[in-house]
Design a protein around this nucleic acid. Structure first.
Ligand SMILES: [Mn+2]
Ligand SMILES: [Mn+2]
Ligand SMILES: [Zn+2]
Ligand SMILES: [Zn+2]
Lengths: 142, 142
DNA sequence: ATGTTAAATTGTAATGATTACAACTTAGAA
DNA sequence: TTCTAAGTTGTAATCATTACAATTTAACAT
């Protein structure tokens, strides 16, 4: 059940705790880029002793070690992503969904020449997602 | 003094108020991507009656009309940019500076094919800026 | 120029996400 | 099994942002 996450934590010399395992598993199984609160609520029922502070502490640790990444796409709250590889995101202003966009940033080469040391790359698009566009079209009849 | 900003507001049919003119001028003259609080503090002395709520209201209006744009690069607070054209940013984790990166995103073409309606494009790089790298090199002697 | 009114400004209070902190618990090493 | 540094928990504090109601004002019509 948790072997995969135990392995991940061990490989990164992070202490193995039930809370961290649950949070990792939740993020792995919920690729919706959930907020800290969504992680907390999603796990609280099966883990009644879980504290929201622990969720914050855990995602911070996991991010520091590069196991997960956090997104500041929405402004009001951080979102967490099990995927730690570089990829872009699309935020739908209508339904709030955050979609993975699997494209590489071709600008990294230029950034390396700039003299700045690049450690993170974030690409965010915002607009109306495909599904919401379909719904709009239906309503308008156009 | 303010003709430029009066013109901008008029062109966009936004009511002209002293506060909006001051805020626009501040953003034009401070291309550091300041926070709402920095705008407020920067103007408060010369405009003692200014309210922080007005700063929030004003930047919201200005952004809605496309006169300025807001960045969610830092996570903890929004930053405002007089430039409204598409460009990328670099956030230095050491000194906190946000630098304009004048490159276009070559991925927009692909996004148009995706079926999603793209309204905003944000590209953020994070790391250590050129200046902070120089200082580090001096210290390490390497 | 004056009056009118919808919109803008202001100050304060409420909200909501995140962090600080101190007491308690536990994972992992010896 | 014992020990202890690290992790967890609950609560309180912080900080950015928003809500709201009273006051003021920009822009338009007279
Ligand atoms: Mn993702
Ligand atoms: Mn900029
Ligand atoms: Zn949508
Ligand atoms: Zn720097």
């Amino acid at each position: 059940m948790f072997e995969k996450y135990v392995k991940l934590l061990k490989e990164n010399s992070i202490k193995i705790t039930p809370q961290r395992l649950e949070i990792l598993k939740y993020l792995d199984e919920n690729r919706t880029h959930p907020t800290a609160d969504q992680i907390y609520t999603g796990l609280k029922e099966k883990n009644p002793s879980l504290s929201k502070t622990t969720v914050y502490n855990s995602v911070e640790t996991l991010e520091e070690h590069g196991l997960i990444q956090s997104l500041t796409i929405s402004g009001s709250e951080s979102r967490y992503d099990f995927r730690n590889d570089m990829h872009h995101h699309f935020l739908c202003k209508k339904c709030g969904t955050i979609i993975d966009i699997d494209i590489k940033c071709p600008n990294i080469g230029k950034m390396l020449e700039s003299g700045h040391k690049v450690e993170e790359v974030h690409g965010y698009f915002k607009g109306i997602c495909k599904d919401c566009m379909k719904k709009e079209t239906k309503q308008n009849g156009s």
